Computed example of a mutant assay.
Amino acid sequence: MPQQASKAATRPAPSPGRPKDMNKRAAILLAAERMFLDGGYEGVSMDQIASEAGVSKLTVYSHFGDKDALFVEAVRGYCEKQLPTSAFDPDPSVPLRERLLAVGHAFFAMVSSPQAISGHRLLCSPQMVEKRLAKLFWECGPERVQAKFAALLERRIAVGQLEIDDVQRASGQFFALLKGEMHQRLVMGVDTSGSDAAHGAHIAAAVDMFLRAYGTRA
């Protein structure tokens, strides 16, 4: 035992290899995003994700712990790419309606993509509810988006452009308006042929309704 301890003490410490590790992490997340969207949570294994990312399964587990944690991080990464923090820039020099339209278009594009529609259906399944993945998805996806939008609203309230008593409620209402019937029809497969013009008119109507409810009369 003393000899083994001595050898361990004199063994050189492994190099951190941080750039390489971060590259592997990014590759794992990219593979997970793509495969979860295509195959759903149950249809994809950690082995498959590791193979797609070009790493070992042990590497996947060392970065993310388990499949649930990887799923949550993949959702967070997907949402951040589709609707980055910069979209919620509260700079009041940008006209309010213009800013809301920009957020609205980015959000609707994210939730109406074929992959997002498939993911929405998956999250409504009993299996996802039982595993609490729907709750985790809400926390790292919609809840994050609403919180960032609420910060934008707070800044606009401070400069006198909006009058809102309950900012969190108003934030949720804004995204509910953006989804509306059009998103529901997409989820149910009733109408998947909406044109860009129809989507634009829907988003503009949602923004204008929000401003009629909360905009100040300058």
Rank of each mutant, 00 (worst) to 15 (best):
P84E: 10
C79T: 13
Q82K: 13
A26S: 10
Q48K: 10
F64W: 06
K24S: 11
G39I: 03
I49F: 00
Q82V: 10
E42N: 08
R25K: 13
K81V: 06
P19W: 11
R76F: 01
Y78R: 13
L29R: 06
Q48P: 06
R18L: 14
V72S: 10
F64K: 02
G40S: 04
F64T: 01
K81E: 11
F36H: 05
R76A: 14
D66Q: 11
A50R: 07
A32F: 13
E73C: 04
E73I: 09
E52H: 00
L58I: 02
A53Q: 00
T85F: 08
Y61I: 15
G17D: 12
Y41I: 06
M35Q: 13
G54T: 05
G54C: 05
V60E: 01
C79S: 15
N23I: 10
Y78L: 10
K81R: 15
A26H: 07
A69S: 15
A69I: 01
A26W: 07
F36M: 08
F64Y: 10
L37S: 15
L29F: 04
D66G: 04
D47P: 04
P19D: 12
G65K: 14
Q48W: 04
R76P: 01
K24N: 12
R18S: 01
P16G: 11
F36L: 13
S45N: 05
R25E: 07
D47V: 09
L37F: 00
A27E: 00
I28Q: 02
E80T: 08
G43L: 05
E73Q: 14
Q48S: 10
E42D: 12
A74Q: 04
K67I: 01
L83Y: 06
P84H: 11
Y61D: 14
Y61F: 13
E33D: 11
G54S: 00
K67L: 03
I49L: 07
G65P: 06
E42V: 03
L30T: 14
R34H: 14
F36P: 01
S56A: 08
P19I: 14
E52I: 00
C79W: 02
R76C: 05
S51W: 07
E80N: 08
L29C: 05
E80R: 09
R34L: 04
L37I: 00
L58F: 03
G39L: 09
S56L: 02
H63V: 07
Y41D: 08
V75N: 04
E80P: 01
G65M: 11
M22G: 03
E52A: 12
P19C: 13
A32R: 09
G40P: 01
R25N: 08
G39C: 09
A53N: 03
M46E: 10
V75P: 06
G77W: 04
D21E: 13
M22I: 07
D47H: 10
F71A: 14
S51D: 11
L37N: 15
A32T: 09
S51G: 06
G65W: 15
L58A: 15
K57M: 04
E33Q: 13
Y61P: 09
G77K: 02
V55I: 05
G77A: 09
D68P: 01
N23R: 15
V75Q: 02
G43W: 05
T85K: 12
H63F: 08
G39A: 10
S62K: 11
A27D: 02
P84C: 08
L29A: 02
A31M: 08
V72K: 13
V60T: 09
V75E: 04
S62N: 15
F36E: 05
